[in-house]
Structures are given as C-alpha cells and as structure tokens.
C-alpha cells in the first residue's frame, strides 16, 4: 500500500505568531517554523501501518517555500520513505483553492492508495483543503476521524460529528484526515536522522504540474492587530479573595 501524508510547515503555536499588516500574509520571520502537530499524528498513523507491514510505502508531501524542506526532513527522519516538495514562487500566498488544486495535481503524479492529512492546520484553521483535494480527485473523504482501520479492502473509521460520533467507511483510494484523538507521533531516533539524509526528495514546480489558474480566488482586504490585553487586579488569597471576586462579579453585572 502506498500512503501519501500531507505535511504543512506552520508557525510554532508556542510563540507569538504575526501577520504582515500590509499583505495579511504570515510573517515567517516572527516565529520558528515547525511541522504542524496534527500532520505528525497523521504520519504516525501511516508509520504504524508500515511497522505492521514492511510492504507499506510512506511518502511525505508538502507545498511551501524552500525552507519547508525542513518539514520533509523531519518526516523522513521519523520514518517516511521519500518526500515530495512542491515549491514555486508563483505559489506564494496561495489560497485554499489554489493550494488544493496544486496538491491534487501532485498527488496524481505521485500516485497513492491513501492520502492522510490533519483535519485542520493550526495557522489557517480552515479545514477545507482535504475536501477540495477529494473533489478534484473525485475520491471519498473520511474527515475528522478519531480512529481508523486502514486495510487493502478499504478504510473503516470513527468520525467526530457535532453531537456524537459516526461509524464510516470508504473503498480505496481515499482521503483520510485525523484529529488530535490519534496517537502522538514518535520522535526521530539517531538512525532515522542519519538515514533521512540519503532518502529521496522530489521537487515539483507549479509549471511542471501545469495547474490551470482558477477563475476564483480569495483576497485579503484588511488586516488589523488587536491591542494586547492588559493584566488587571491580582490578589494573593488571604481568606477574603473569594468575597472580593464575588463583589467584582456583582459590580460588573456578571452574575
């Protein structure tokens, strides 16, 4: 089985993330870039299948600037067999539609039985790219799964719905997205880090993929930074703090 794991390099959520106020785009200088944690969980799911069946091939794919190759190196050091890097200046600031069209084209070239991705990235939080990719490829999407059983005859999974969970399934090939309920990813070991350097990374440009420019696109028209919150009163409890808080809540009509 061939599994392609979609990986996105995102600003570290442990730091103060910044937008460029003129363009509305991410300020990549402001924070460290890391592999989005949800993608690591997706990769872990793929690697567990590989642990159980050595015939499983795991490919990590990303679209991003030159520096995004770091995310692929991390995936390779964790255990992916190879990687695909879609890199092209014309893709700077690509919206979800352009991103999905490009990923779909690259997935056609790469080939797969299963595509594994995160349910949403921590930066954009849109959660629409996997569905767009599925529509481009005319494939089923099993999205926002809390668990999955992936086998040659198809994927069975449990999906997190609004008021409970759903038992769902699809035949292969299929697109699958995982939630935080999937197991945490393994750490790269020393051998993994050494062998990662010898694993192949294929580079694809937008021209090679020949993705037609869509007629529709999203445009940011304004970006405003909110003033930071200021700290208010802070009491050390001496036995009376609860009463003072109750007074504060009443005075501000919060109870």
């Amino acid at each position: 089985m061939k599994i392609v794991v979609l990986v996105k390099q995102v600003p570290d959520t442990a730091e103060e993330r910044k937008l460029n106020l003129a363009t509305g785009q991410l300020d990549r200088e402001a924070t460290d870039s890391v592999v989005d944690e949800i993608n690591e969980r997706a990769l872990e799911a793929a690697l567990r299948l590989k642990d159980a069946d050595k015939g499983t091939e795991v490919v990590a794919m990303t679209m991003g600037p030159a520096d995004a190759v770091q995310a692929l190196r991390k995936a390779l050091s964790m255990g992916a067999d190879s990687a695909v890097h879609i890199v092209d200046d014309s893709l700077n600031g690509a919206d979800t539609g352009r991103t999905a069209a490009t990923l779909a084209a690259a997935l056609r070239v790469t080939g797969f039985d299963v595509v594994l991705a995160g349910n949403e990235s921590t930066d954009g939080r849109g959660g629409v790219v996997p569905a767009m990719v599925a529509e481009h490829l005319k494939l089923p999407l099993l999205g926002s799964l809390v668990s999955a059983d992936i086998a040659d005859d198809g994927v069975h999974g449990v999906r997190q719905g609004e008021g409970g969970t759903l038992t769902v399934r699809a035949a292969l090939p299929a697109i699958v997205t995982v939630t935080e309920r999937f197991p945490e990813a393994r750490f790269p070991n020393f051998k993994g880090i050494l062998t990662a350097k010898r694993k192949p990374v294929t580079t694809l440009s937008a021209a090679e993929l020949d993705v037609p420019a869509g007629v529709s696109r999203t445009v940011v028209v304004a970006t405003v930074e909110r003033p930071p919150r200021a700290a208010g009163r802070k009491l050390i409890d001496d036995g009376t703090a609860a009463d003072e808080l109750a007074e504060f809540l009443v005075a501000n009509r919060l109870v």
């Binding site: 103060e16 993330r17 937008l19 509305g24 930066d123 869509g214 007629v215 529709s216 696109r217 999203t218 445009v219 940011v220 028209v221 304004a222 970006t223 405003v224 930074e225 909110r226």
Partner: peptide, 15 residues
C-alpha cells in the same frame, strides 16, 4: 486570526 490577535477581512474575486 491567531486566537483573536488579528482581525482580517477578505473577499472572493471572480467566483
């Protein structure tokens, strides 16, 4: 965006 640190307005062109 980013937990309310930014307010961003956007539109769709052409579709």
């Amino acid at each position: 965006v980013f937990g309310g640190a930014y307010t961003v307005d956007s539109v769709v062109e052409g579709g």
